[in-house]
Write a protein that binds this DNA or RNA. Structure first.
Lengths: 193, 193
DNA sequence: CTTGTATTGGACCGAACAGTCCTTAATTTT
DNA sequence: AAAATTAAGGACTGTTCGGTCCAATACAAG
């Protein structure tokens, strides 16, 4: 009954997510969010609560989307190829016309996690999740022969997770796509020996 | 001639640095800076210019101090031990009573570098500098036998630089000192094989 | 067509923001 | 001691912040 919403809630959330993704939490003002979503102030507050609530919702939407992507990409064969694609796709937007995005979880590890337990917990979960899926992929790789290293899959996965924020930092610091690819190439040699 | 300054400029800069270091640029207000430095508004503006100028000055002071530390630590013998000490000292404050600090350059790579060329340039310089000093240290280590790996020192250095932001992220995400040490231990195995 | 309910736009709020400016105070030089 | 010079304190600015509130509106149910 009564008047229906004029906007698509999940679409609005997606737009808000991009805004936070691009500029972080503090630097994204409510004005930015209104412009990004196209909502009016009252609609935004009625639908999502305050800025912080909207952020957490957007962050969770981001995390869910990324987790889906990761599972899809890492299912490829052979596993080694899947892992490379996984990393490669995370920096798909580098040096495109689009602004730099990188991984929102890493950005938030730096910006909010130290001062905000709710964010911190999410970041920790994301890192652990990444370690888990990479461990599985590397394990598969060791079986199908695409990952030569005999070290425990978990250790190798931890190494990759450890290096991931480094790639993110390089991307944000303006390194070229070529340089990022080289760094990844170098990183993947750890899977060989 | 005339009235002398009541405060120590470099000391005030140091306090401002800690404030920016702890909370980042956006989240550190002028009020925070006044409280941290103990200056009055007019003194701060007369001495350092605006917030951004003060930030850049503080950032440069930080970078200089860190570069000095790095050189000092990495001069130790044997080189392998020096490298471990180097990484270890970067996270000395983790799990202490002090708040989390980590590396300011990495924090700024995430926060300001994408949108601020002056910051971006500094971050790139810092990463390159880190690669350079680590390359030299690893080279020494290969000569004195403390670094067993036969891979080019530069490649190994790049691997360490790549992993460094990962340690920073772990620290900011609240990982324990033990977990950080384990991650470093794992990382250093790359110098062995 | 009336009634009821939910959405909408925008006026409005106090607080905090970075930054300016002027008066007052302190110290050296003359 | 007086003059000159500069630091320090704090009042003040306009703007923007996140957030609230209300009146107008639009739709569905009866």
């Amino acid at each position: 009954m009564s008047r229906p919403q004029e906007f698509d809630t999940t679409e609005a959330l997606h737009h808000a997510m991009r805004a936070f993704w691009l500029k972080g939490y503090e630097a994204t003002s409510l004005t930015d969010l209104l412009a990004a979503t196209g909502l009016s102030k009252s609609s935004l507050y009625a639908t999502f609560g305050g800025k912080r609530d909207l952020f957490l919702a957007a962050f969770d939407a981001y995390r869910q989307a990324r987790a889906r992507d990761a599972h899809r990409v890492l299912r490829q064969q052979p596993a080694r190829r899947a892992i490379e694609t996984f990393f490669h796709s995370l920096f798909a937007d580098v040096n495109s016309d689009e602004p730099m995005l990188g991984c929102m979880s890493i950005n938030q590890a730096v910006e909010l996690a130290p001062h905000d337990p709710a964010v911190r917990q999410r970041v920790v979960e994301d890192l652990q999740q990444m370690e888990l899926v990479l461990t599985q992929a590397i394990g598969r790789g060791q079986q199908d022969g695409s990952v030569a290293s005999l070290r425990p899959a978990r250790e190798l996965a931890r190494l990759l997770v450890l290096a991931f924020p480094g790639l993110q930092v390089m991307a944000r610091a303006g390194y070229t796509r070529q340089q990022l690819d080289d760094a990844q190439q170098l990183l993947f040699t750890c899977l060989d020996g």
